[in-house]
Amino acid sequence: MKPAHRKQARVLALQALYAWSMSGNDMSQVELSIVTTNDMSKVDMEYFQAILQGASADVKALDKAYKPYLGRLPEEMDPIEKAIMRLATVELTLRMDTPYKVVINEAIELAKSFGAEDSHKFINGALDKAVKTLRKDERS
């Protein structure tokens, strides 16, 4: 699959996670809405579904996995930052087919596009610390 198709999968997964967290709707409804209102021909659907499912299945465990690397309380994060951290953590822990440098870079790009002014710096710092534990074999 083309890298651009995975990039678009991340963008739509981020939008779905944000909509889910703000609306409180069932994830299957949110996913259906995303899939039916967007052109999915240039989206890696398997990747989209895998990271979306991973990022929404056990939010408490996911948040616990990245919490030590934040440098602030999770409650102080905005919904976009949380969604980006959840997606990146899923990719770092479950998608070993994606190099950690790509995961971090893509998370930074999402933060630049959708986050607050300096959220990309926060995301970069947190993921740079997290990858040392979550992908220690790849970093050695």
Results as ranks from 00 to 15, higher is better:
A83Y: 02
I51Y: 07
L52H: 07
R72P: 04
T93S: 05
L52E: 03
P74E: 07
L94F: 02
D63V: 10
E75Y: 03
K67P: 01
I51H: 08
E76S: 15
L73P: 04
A61T: 15
D58R: 14
Y47E: 02
I80N: 03
I51E: 12
L52V: 06
E91V: 12
P68G: 13
A83R: 01
M77W: 00
T89E: 11
V59T: 15
R72S: 06
Y47R: 14
K67Y: 10
E75D: 12
D63G: 11
A88G: 10
L94G: 03
L70D: 08
L62W: 00
A50T: 12
A65H: 04
K64Y: 08
R86N: 13
A55M: 07
Y47S: 08
L62T: 13
Q53I: 09
P68R: 12
L73T: 15
I84Q: 04
Y66T: 07
P79G: 09
Y66H: 05
I80V: 15
K64W: 03
T93P: 02
D63A: 07
D78I: 08
I80H: 01
E81T: 05
Y66C: 06
A57D: 10
L94A: 14
E76I: 05
K82F: 04
Q49M: 13
K60R: 12
Y69P: 06
L70W: 11
K82W: 00
I84K: 06
E75R: 10
A88V: 04
I84P: 01
K60I: 11
I84N: 00
R86K: 07
T89N: 10
V90T: 15
Y66P: 05
A83S: 14
L62M: 11
A55V: 06
A65D: 13
A61K: 15
I80G: 02
I84L: 10
E75G: 03
Y66Q: 01
R72W: 01
A61C: 05
P74F: 06
S56P: 14
